[in-house]
Computed example of a mutant assay.
Amino acid sequence: MTTAFHDLADRVLAGEPATEHDALAVLRATDEEVLDVVAAAGRLRRAHFGNTVKVNYLVNLKSGLCPENCNYCSQALGSTAPILKYSWLKTDEALAQAAAGLKGGASRVCMVSSGRGPSDRDLDKVTEMVGAIKAEHPQVEVCACLGLLKDGQAERLREAGVDAYNHNINTAESHHDQIVQTHTYADRVDTVEKAKGAGLSPCSGLIAGLGETDEQLVEALLALKALDSDSIPVNFLMPFDGTPYENTWELTPQRCLLILAMARFVCPDKELRIAGGREMHLRSLQGLALHVANSIFLGDYLTSEGQAAEADLELIRDNGFVVLGSEEHAAQLAHPDPAIRRRGAGTSIPANA
């Protein structure tokens, strides 16, 4: 067993932040060290999140028709990817889609629209949808992802019942201009700060496989830590036909595992979500990745199909995890044996309870 990564886990569990050097060492682990890296990162995951997996569900409110030129995106200006393009869903359509995700075990619904950012009329539509979803499912978390925010818009979303706001930085500041030119890295950070300032839980992550260096991956994760992002979606580039990245294949399943492990060491107590591209790039190692990450999207993504929701839930069960908020999770938390209660609660129950 390679002890260096477990020594790193010991230090992080003791409250010592992982350094840039530590993060690079994780990313550059050899094939023979991958399982040791996962085991060490898994200790952090279990300490903070027990054996739970948070399940999220995407509702694509508006598809395509975007004026931004994000080179990785099938919905971007100039993309010829064969995707569905439509304007805003009606409230009842959004409600039906959200209900399907919740029935499958999701506890958070992510309401996403394409475009540079919402107009005030767009916000009217979204707040109406949020009100309808919360009226029928008051326990659900709602995360909005609507693009760049103007002053006052985050406050409107918070007042309407939105719990979180997603706006990914996507890559390191030093690499940002290589992947998009119609907005800046600072624009993205500003929107995350607006969301935080309004009391929304900040959700911001990255896309791996965009031609970035190891150093730039670490730079991006350290930036997300500095932003204090509560949840960090890690996407793996899906090289859509008709986009500038259509022939870009930089990732292997083991590389994806190391990226997730690096994220866990840098941000040990944050929700780490395996997002777009996990089926394509992690493939048979998806289950192993759950021993590092503690959150996934259920079913399909914005413009691409994921694996069947039943397969996702089976993946969770087969790897010894329970869905956060499920009956199985509730039974763990109510169990008379403190060891079993701790299994579902991470560090929230003292060891001597």
Rank of each mutant, 00 (worst) to 15 (best):
S304H: 05
S295Q: 02
Y301Q: 13
Q307C: 11
G306S: 07
Q307V: 10
T303C: 06
D312F: 02
I316Y: 04
Y301T: 12
E305H: 12
F297T: 09
D300V: 05
E314F: 01
G306Y: 01
F321W: 04
E310V: 14
A311M: 06
A311L: 09
L302Y: 08
L298G: 04
R317I: 00
I296K: 00
G325D: 10
G306H: 02
S304M: 05
I316F: 04
I316K: 07
A308M: 09
R317N: 12
S304Y: 00
L298M: 10
L315D: 14
S295E: 04
L324K: 12
D300Y: 04
D318L: 07
E305F: 07
L313G: 13
N319V: 04
E305R: 12
E305Q: 14
A311H: 10
L324R: 12
D312Q: 06
T303V: 06
I316E: 12
G325N: 08
D312I: 02
V322L: 03
E314C: 00
A309D: 13
L302A: 06
S304D: 09
E314V: 00
L315E: 14
G320R: 08
Q307F: 02
G306E: 05
E314G: 05
L313I: 15
L298N: 06
N319H: 15
S295F: 00
S304N: 07
Y301R: 10
I316Q: 10
L313R: 15
T303N: 07
S304Q: 09
A309N: 11
G306Q: 04
Q307R: 14
D318R: 12
T303I: 00
I296T: 00
D300T: 09
L324A: 15
T303R: 01
F297V: 08
T303H: 04
Q307W: 02
G325V: 03
L315K: 11
G299P: 04
A308W: 02
G320I: 05
V323D: 03
I296Y: 01
S295G: 05
S304C: 07
F297W: 05
A309Y: 03
A308Y: 05
L315G: 14
G306L: 03
G320T: 08
G325T: 04
L313F: 08
I296D: 04
N319S: 08
E305D: 13
A309V: 14
V322E: 06
L315W: 09
L302S: 07
A308H: 13
G306T: 05
I316M: 11
L324T: 11
L302R: 05
F321L: 13
A309P: 11
S304L: 03
L324C: 09
G306R: 01
R317S: 15
A311G: 01
D312W: 03
I296M: 02
N319L: 02
I316R: 07
T303P: 02
I296N: 03
S304V: 08
R317F: 05
E305W: 04
A309M: 15
V323P: 02
V322F: 01
Q307T: 13
R317D: 15
L298S: 05
E310D: 15
V323G: 03
G320W: 06
I316L: 11
L313M: 15
Y301K: 10
G299V: 02
